[in-house]
Design a binder for these strands. Structure first.
Length: 962
RNA sequence: AGCCCGAUGUUGUAGUCUGGAUGCAAUCCACUCUGAUAAGGUGGCAGCAAAGGUUCGAAUCCUUUUCGGGCUACCA
């Protein structure tokens, strides 16, 4: 008889190889047809809500690995909250307005489209981009309301953005002002801080002389008697020659020491910071002629000055007396090429560590200059237009591009002999993040959300935001310091832009005064109603006559649009605040509407911050309870990905090669609080972990194939001890993962626990021990059903825990386990494992038995190396146990040999424990492969042992402990 | 330029606050099984970025350096 057929070898439809790249898309099709997202919403209806609000990616460009990482993390959380028992809807979104899209349309269609056409094209383009990105997101397994995402260009959202602006206006935080803003010539618009990046750029650096209006008087201050026909100059240093037309002052540091120095070349006299004389001379050669040696004789020219500091100053002819900057204040100088007198003023930003210690001051072109200009009442007038060219009234330079004007300025300075030196320097310079081109500072009329302006409730936005940061929980904790300093330091938020594809600032301003219409808040609501129906075109095409209820005759429409950061920064109002499924039934006053925002660490200056500011300005508190940040993705060597390094990992390729679950497992297994490394090797290692998990599941499913929980389950108090232990173990693991690791978002620790559970606890112990019982005991006998009962619970628990991460694999296995091709882990909550009596005791006992087992295994391995045994069943153990060990081992009774997978164990009590391994002299049972002395006892089954006879012909063997 | 973070075998990680033989998993090698088979079991190899300091003792504390990542600011 072939006894192999009597062994319970099961098979499963769950294949060993995942073949994910091919099968995942099929699963997705099925899920879409089933409308799984909607079905889950129905199942979850009535539960407490957990709101993770999606930060909208910009609707332009292909998905990169950073997008994928972010969305996968979000999906893991959404799924984990769902299976934990929350109603966790996920509405993905896109950021749609703004310059990058405009640029693409301009590139395609030129700049001469009608505004309405242009905006329509932008809208179409954004929609196309969204469709592409959406397909990739879905492919990642991200579960969400993909048929109904939010877009910042939805008419309702656009109207909501306008309304949010209205609230901020009403609350007193919005104001218009003239201020220097970052200005990108290529964008033709002001930029937000977040849109500015710094690169090394080359600039001309020039030293320029400003002639004193009254040289004689200035010389006297230095106790110098100026020869007739000689002049005194102040020298400034600048790397932006083009700002000289806007020069209104020279700025000195009040505590800096300034000297008057004579140039043997020009025969004139110059004011420079005393300790910068040498560096100025080094670059200009102005003061110390080659080969000059002071011989104690003074030339006629020099006699005018009382020379005393000469020797000390290495040949520089300097007036002995120096003056502090404060003593130079208000001295008048002539502009180098305009008929304009400019004063010497004082400012803290003037230092003596570079340049000449005197700072050229153009209030229209720099923040410091602007502030000091306001203080001294200087002309703030900005001569540069939106296009980066001087306006028509600018002498000499009218119509010229500012950067091109650099050369012209140099030329003119040379002509009028005011240029003392010119070199090129490479320095870090602010640039537009889109164009990478140099930006300029430009003082223009803009609209701001004030950080330090008290709102209608008497508090400043900065105060409110700081408080709100305190109330927020950060993962990881250092995010708090980051956001705090960000908000502490930021200037007023310039929200106006001068573009076409953006949400308009729907205000009417007075023709002459520029004041907002007194009924602005009401008008704005009227406009919002129109935008809700027709989109932003409603504003751009609006005629005052269409709002007859307001007196608009002396008012004009504001043409500015809003910074796109305002669009995304208000989604907690325009999206979360308006979609019913995202609202909690019992939200308390001042309670954030959203539980979690989750984005890359760059969003501290971006979305985290803009949302915080609008939240505080409109609602007085943060829009979110928790902030979770992840790092950027870098390559296997920790380098950031770049085209030139050729180390870019493309998510689509990973999915085509390994499948989405592999990418998801990679995200989960990586500590994302720092950088996330990815490379081919790393992915290979990840897929090895995956195989381990998958195979464990396969083994579990295979051995449950003939098991029906409703008919075959063994009552828990009747189960074999080892099986009860295994359930207790699984319960403890599940508790840790569900109660600690998922809620604290520490997925990498969770994955470690799970992989080591599959390898060590299950593969290395429980399942290994169980094989004998599963295969050889009576198919529907107590011993086997007890094991299967445990396996069933373990599998159900394991798949639930895995499902947020291995979304595809877990559900694939779930269908097999439940014998239902339409079921999903997410239609259920975490499996409730049966409560096991004395579980701690059991865990403790079997942990000790495992420890001793490894001693046994070492002994077996020694015998194996000696060539005495192969399979461990060839061995018999003689265990001499001391008084601690003996009760432990004997408490497992005759089942100890199964726990240790040998054919026989002899146990006695001694003082010192030891294990002896003997090779069995008995015959091998053809069926169960144990070596036994009762083979052949039964005539009918001459080649198998008594236990096997009982299992195939009797009622099945009895097991109690293992 | 300043500030912050990180670096643990080939890979992913734990341990660092609070000093005490580094640990887990995968890879690799060897043995073994052939009833999880492009599997399973057992054993083995190998690591604290570098240097210095404190200490009986340092992955851990201190200093310096290197490399990587990030942030902030701006040199007019």
């Amino acid at each position: 008889m072939d006894y192999k057929n009597t062994v319970n070898l099961q098979d499963t439809t769950f294949p060993m190889r995942g073949d994910l790249a091919k099968r995942e898309p099929q699963m997705l099709d099925k899920w879409t047809k089933q409308q799984r997202y909607q079905k889950i919403r129905e199942i979850c209806a009535g539960r407490d809500k957990f709101i993770l609000h999606d930060g909208p990616p910009y609707a332009n460009g292909k998905l990169h690995i950073g997008h994928a990482t972010n969305k996968i993390l979000k999906d893991i959380i959404i799924r984990s909250k769902t299976i934990e028992g929350y109603d966790a809807p996920y509405v993905p979104g896109w950021d749609c307005h703004g310059l990058p899209i405009e640029l693409n349309i301009e590139k395609q269609f030129g700049k001469n489209l009608e505004p309405r056409d242009f905006r329509n094209k932008c809208r179409e383009y954004a929609n196309e981009q969204i469709e592409q990105q959406k397909a990739d997101f879905i492919r990642l397994g991200v579960l969400g309301d993909w048929n109904n995402p939010y877009k910042t260009m939805d008419f309702k959202t656009e109207a909501g953005i306008v309304r949010s602006l209205g609230e901020i206006y009403k609350n007193g935080y919005l104001f218009s002002g003239v201020k220097p803003v970052y200005w990108c010539i290529d964008c033709g618009s002001a930029l937000a801080e977040a849109e500015v990046e710094y690169y090394d750029k080359q600039s001309p650096a020039i030293d320029v002389a400003f002639k004193a209006v009254d040289s004689q008087e200035v010389a006297k201050k230095f106790d110098v008697d100026l020869p007739s026909g000689k002049s005194v100059f102040a020298i400034i240093w600048t790397t932006t020659p083009w700002t000289l037309p806007a020069n209104q002052a020279i700025c000195a540091g009040s505590e800096i020491e300034y000297a008057l120095i004579y140039s043997p070349h020009t025969k004139d006299y110059y004011i420079v910071a005393a300790n910068l004389i040498e560096s100025l001379d080094t670059r200009s050669g102005l003061f110390k002629p080659d080969g000059f040696v002071f011989n104690g004789q003074l030339s006629t020219e020099e006699v005018a000055i009382t020379w005393r500091g000469v020797a000390k100053l290495n040949g520089y002819r300097v007036a002995e007396k120096t003056l502090l900057g404060a003593e130079l204040e208000h001295i008048k100088f002539e502009h180098p090429f305009y008929n304009r007198q400019v004063p010497m003023i004082l400012g803290e930003h003037a230092t003596d560590d570079a340049g000449t210690g005197l700072v050229h001051t153009a209030p229209a072109h720099g923040m410091d200059d602007y502030l000091v200009g306001v203080k001294y009442g200087l002309d703030l007038h900005n001569p540069v237009g939106n296009d980066g060219c001087y306006i028509s009234t600018t002498e000499i330079f009218a119509g010229m591009n500012v950067f091109k004007a650099n050369d012209k300025v140099v030329e003119i300075l040379t002509e009028c002999q005011r240029l003392m030196n010119k070199t090129d320097i490479t320095h870090s310079y602010p640039c537009c993040w889109r164009h990478k081109s140099k930006i300029i500072f430009r003082t223009t009329g803009q609209w701001f959300i004030g950080m330090d302006k008290a709102g209608s409730d008497g508090k400043t936005l900065r105060e409110q935001a700081n408080k709100a940061v305190d109330d927020t929980k950060f993962f990881p904790a250092w995010g708090r310091a980051r956001l705090e300093s960000m908000i502490g330091n930021r200037p007023d938020w310039c929200v106006s832009r001068q573009r076409n594809w953006g949400v308009p600032m729907t205000f009417f301003v007075h023709k002459e005064t520029g004041e907002l219409h007194p009924e602005s808040y009401v008008i704005l609501e009227a406009v919002a109603k129109k935008i809700e129906v027709e989109g932003i075109d409603a504003w751009f095409e609006l005629k005052s006559e269409q709002l007859p209820e307001f007196n608009l005759t002396d008012y004009v429409k504001l043409k500015d649009t809003l910074d796109v950061w305002f669009d995304s920064g208000t989604t907690h109002l325009t999206v979360v605040g308006t979609r019913p499924e995202l609202q909690k039934a019992n939200l308390q006053a001042n309670e954030p509407a959203v539980d979690l925002y989750l984005e890359g660490s760059d969003q501290h200056r971006g979305w985290f911050q803009s949302s915080m500011l609008t939240g505080c300005a409109v609602t007085g508190h943060a829009p979110y309870k928790q902030l979770l940040t992840h790092g950027f993705v870098v390559d296997g060597n920790g380098r950031k990905m770049s085209k030139s390094l050729g180390n870019i990992v493309v998510p689509q390729e990973v999915m085509d090669k390994y499948g989405a679950d592999m990418l998801r497992l990679w995200v989960a297994a990586t500590d994302y609080s720092g950088e996330l490394s990815i490379s081919d090797e790393i992915l290979k290692r990840v897929s090895e972990s995956y195989r381990r998990i998958r195979n464990t599941i396969r083994f579990l499913l295979a051995n449950l194939n003939d098991f029906n929980i409703n008919k075959d389950a063994v009552a828990f108090d009747k189960m074999i001890e080892l099986d009860r232990y295994a359930i207790a173990y699984a319960d403890k693991l599940q508790a840790k993962i569900v109660n600690e690791l998922y809620p604290s978002y520490q997925f990498h620790l969770l994955i470690q626990e799970l992989v080591s559970y599959c390898s060590e606890e299950l593969g290395g112990f429980y399942l290994d021990v169980l094989k004998d019982r599963l295969y050889t005991s009576k198919a529907d006998g107590h011993a086997r059903r007890s094991a299967q009962t445990a396996l069933y619970h373990i599998t159900k628990s394991l798949l639930g825990i895995l499902s947020p991460i291995l979304a595809f694999t877990a559900d694939e296995a779930w269908e097999v386990l439940m014998h239902d091709a339409n079921d999903s882990t997410l239609f259920h909550t975490h499996h409730k494992l049966p409560e096991i009596d004395n579980s701690d005791e059991l865990l403790n006992k079997w942990t000790k038995l495992q420890e001793f087992r490894s001693t046994v295994l070492k002994e077996l391995e020694a015998k194996r190396t000696e060539g005495l045994i192969g399979a461990s069943l060839q061995a018999e153990l003689v265990i001499h146990a001391n008084k601690d060990l003996y009760p432990l081992l004997s408490s497992v009774g005759k089942d100890l040999k199964f726990a240790y997978m040998v054919s026989k164990v002899t146990l006695d009590q001694v003082d010192t424990s030891s294990v002896t391994v003997n090779v069995s002299k008995e015959a091998k049972c053809e069926r169960c492969w144990h070596y036994s002395d009762d083979i052949g006892t039964n005539q009918e089954h001459a080649t198998i042992c008594g236990r096997c006879v009982e299992n195939i012909a009797g009622n099945g063997e009895t097991r109690t402990f293992a």
